[in-house]
Design a protein around this nucleic acid. Structure first.
Length: 712
DNA sequence: AGCACGCCGACT
DNA sequence: GTCGGCGTGCTC
């Protein structure tokens, strides 16, 4: 702020304070050791008070047309972010059309960004680490690094591979494929290959990063890695307490961890000298960030590996269509592991749900299509065959699983007088009834109310519940088979990580006979005594308005089959469905991945869907319905004019919308979407005019999702 | 995120 | 007039 600003340097800084900003500050001469990626303390006005905040130096810049403040100091207990990582984030910020500072914010957790807690933080760090010759060391190494719920396994220095696994291991270390896809069902031994590769690179004095979906962070997975890598392993997930997370983050940052095992955001961990990045269950949707900044961690993994000269290994029992396409294009090397207990030993039985249907006689002629709310199921929606099989399974001393992709008790409540359902007052969706039907919860905004006794629109008390959720299924099965020991597993039950571990432990050691839940059940876990898996209402996921609906259904069914065929016994998959003979169901039951991928790629080529196109989804939110649509049209005009001016060819771009989203109203805001599909050769950056981001009227009301995974 | 400003309706 | 509710805008 002094007069001598001419002599000072100006620089851009990413500052995080609730929202992330890119601000300009002056740098005094005594900050000679400041480099791109350094953490600094900066002053910033918050209302009338000036506070201190944390910023990351992004680079020098010209003198701006406004007054700038001086940076206060450089943080010494945090190292600078490596420049190659900053460069990668710059690339990501261009590709995903999201400001760089939003990506910078992902590099460090909240305890770094909150300057008020730094005194305490530094005190705690002094008790944990000691600095010597610019190297950090852990002070009390012997203190147990065990994470709650982990099972202690005997130490296995030597990882024994079978012939097939060993061939893949050898081929990867000899031929060094930049990206490879390892296809093998859970239990076929992918983890051994991961472990062996990680061990190999650590012996070369390199580091390894492993990504897993949240749900796959089971005690088994972490225990196996812990047994091999012990205190060289750092595990990052949302279940850690803030102190545990802090310690793990600094262990990685201070170069004291060699293997990082973590969820989506771990792809941005400050691990250096990486030789290998593994993405386990690469098809899993949890790798896609559904909010700002939007990114796909699996794709970032491929990019980071390329930029850092590391190998990238994607593993899955049900590879994504995108990855299989890259295999076909020769971009990814393909490896396949056969299962010892192949899916072929699973017998699939399809039960026709239509026999349970009860269509009301009073339906008016010509009033089709029928709404699901107008159709009732006899026998409470579960076929008698299902009950019989569950009972027989218990009598044989074996276990079963029932999967229904809908949590809650009943789906919704319908007024018989005016045909309106009980709706969330803030969102355009019906509420879901929970806790035996006593409370209504909105699954989108968490609105919660005691179940209303009268219809809000016509005040009629004649309300009828329709649809069925996991809570109800659990209750129905319990009523039919009282001796069956049932446990439910879905997002409603999961209040804590230890709860998940308890449920899984109880099931594995046989205290529970039958696990009822959402598709969460189908993922990852290894239960050898499960011989029967029931999937209810498959058609629900098959016909969603999303081009990935068949892929997700195929994956769900394949994984469900995998769950049933893990042990020595022959497994059974019971499928209760309204539709019979659908090719996607047939192909998954026959375990025919090749034909499914071919069919799917063909469909996507015809429909101009990814991987044959790249999509950019605009979402406009406004509390006024009409204004929302007006704003959306403004965006469309920007786009269409820009494409015309830059003479893009018509067959290279498709624009859909603006239209109101399936979830038209969310949290009292109306949602309008515009979906742009283009040929993959055009970078998203070149397709969107910059004016959109500088338009003050538009800016607060829209989000851009590049490569979207959700279209609701 | 926070904090201030400003616009509008209710009340001395 | 003016108190205060909250919608909107700014932080170098």
């Amino acid at each position: 702020m002094e007069e001598q600003t001419e002599e000072k340097l100006f620089g851009h800084f990413a500052v995080s304070a609730g929202r992330n900003f890119c601000l300009t500050y002056t740098i005094s001469h005594h900050f000679s050791n400041l480099q791109v990626g350094s953490f600094v303390v900066v002053p910033m006005m918050r209302g009338k008070k000036e506070g201190e905040y944390i910023g990351v130096f992004l680079g020098l810049c010209e003198k701006p047309p406004f007054q700038c403040k001086d940076i206060i100091k450089k943080l010494e207990f945090v190292n600078s972010i490596p420049e190659n990582l900053i460069l990668m984030l710059k690339w990501l910020s261009e590709y995903y059309l999201s400001p760089l500072e939003n990506f910078i914010a992902l590099l460090a957790p909240s305890f770094i960004w909150n300057v008020n807690r730094h005194d305490m933080l530094e005190k705690r760090l002094q008790k944990l680490f000691v600095k010597n010759n610019n190297q950090y060391f852990l002070i009390n190494e012997n203190k147990s690094q065990q994470v709650k719920g982990e099972i202690k396994l005997p130490l296995r220095e030597c990882i024994a591979l079978n012939e097939e696994q060993n061939f893949i291991f050898q081929d990867i270390i000899e031929s060094h494929p930049t990206v490879s896809l390892l296809h093998g069902v859970t239990g076929s031994g992918k983890t051994e290959v991961y472990l062996k590769l990680a061990q190999y690179f650590i012996q070369q004095n390199k580091n390894v990063l492993i990504l897993v979906p949240e749900i796959a962070l089971t005690p088994q997975m972490t225990s196996r890695f812990r047994a091999v890598f012990q205190n060289h392993l750092s595990i990052l997930h949302s279940g850690l307490t803030s102190n545990e997370y802090e310690k793990e983050w600094f262990r990685i940052h201070y170069n004291l961890a060699k293997v990082v095992l973590g969820v989506r955001t771990s792809i941005f961990s400050l691990l250096e000298n990486i030789a290998l990045i593994i993405v386990d269950e690469e098809h899993d949707n949890s790798y896609k960030s559904q909010d700002i900044p939007f990114y796909q961690a699996r794709d970032v993994a491929v990019l980071r590996a390329k930029k850092e000269g590391a190998l990238c290994l994607l593993g899955s029992a049900t590879p994504s269509v995108e990855s299989m396409y890259n295999v076909k294009q020769g971009k990814y090397k393909y490896y396949s592991l056969q299962n010892k207990f192949s899916n072929n030993s699973v017998q699939a039985v399809i039960i026709d749900s239509k026999q349970n249907l009860n269509i009301p006689l009073k339906m008016k002629q010509g009033n089709y299509p029928l709404k699901s709310s107008q159709i009732a199921f006899n026998n409470d929606a579960i076929s008698s065959e299902v009950f019989a099989v569950l009972k027989e399974t218990k009598d044989r001393g074996e276990q079963s699983m029932v999967i229904l992709n809908r949590r809650g008790y009943v789906n919704f409540s319908l007024c018989m007088a005016c045909s309106q359902s009980l709706k969330c007052p803030r969102c355009s969706v019906s509420t879901t009834l929970h806790n035996n039907g006593s409370i209504e919860i909105c699954h989108y905004c968490s609105f919660r109310v005691n179940t209303r006794k009268n219809c809000p629109s016509c005040l009629s008390p004649f309300l009828m519940t329709r649809g069925i959720g996991t809570q109800n299924i659990e209750e129905q099965i319990q009523r039919q088979i009282p001796e069956l020991n049932i446990q439910r597993l879905d997002r409603d039950v999961l209040t804590s990580n230890s709860r998940l571990n308890d449920i899984i432990e109880n099931f594995r050691n046989g205290n529970t006979d039958c696990l009822v839940g959402t598709q969460m059940l189908a993922k990852g876990h290894d239960f050898p005594n499960v011989t029967v898996v029931v999937v209810l209402h498959v058609e629900d996921s098959l016909f969603l308005p999303d081009f990935r609906a068949s892929e997700r259904t195929f994956q769900l069914l394949t994984q469900a089959m995998g769950r049933a065929g893990r042990g020595k016994h022959k497994g059974t998959l019971l499928l209760q469905s309204l539709i019979l003979g659908h090719p996607v169901i047939e192909l998954s039951l026959n375990n025919n991945v090749k034909d499914f991928i071919d069919r799917e790629l063909n469909r996507r080529k015809l429909g101009f869907h990814p991987p044959y196109s790249r999509q950019i989804l605009f979402e406009i939110r406004q509390s006024n319905k009409g204004k929302a649509m007006v704003l959306a049209h403004k965006i469309k005009d920007y786009l269409v004019n820009f494409w015309k001016e830059n003479s893009f060819e018509v067959n290279q771009i498709r624009l859909a919308g603006p239209y109101f989203a399936t979830l038209e109203k969310l949290n009292n805001e109306f949602r309008v979407q515009i979906c742009v599909s283009t040929i993959r050769e055009i970078h998203p950056f070149k397709l969107i005019p910059k004016e959109i981001f500088h338009d003050k009227e538009l800016l607060p009301h829209f989000k851009i999702d590049v490569d979207p995974y959700s279209f609701m």
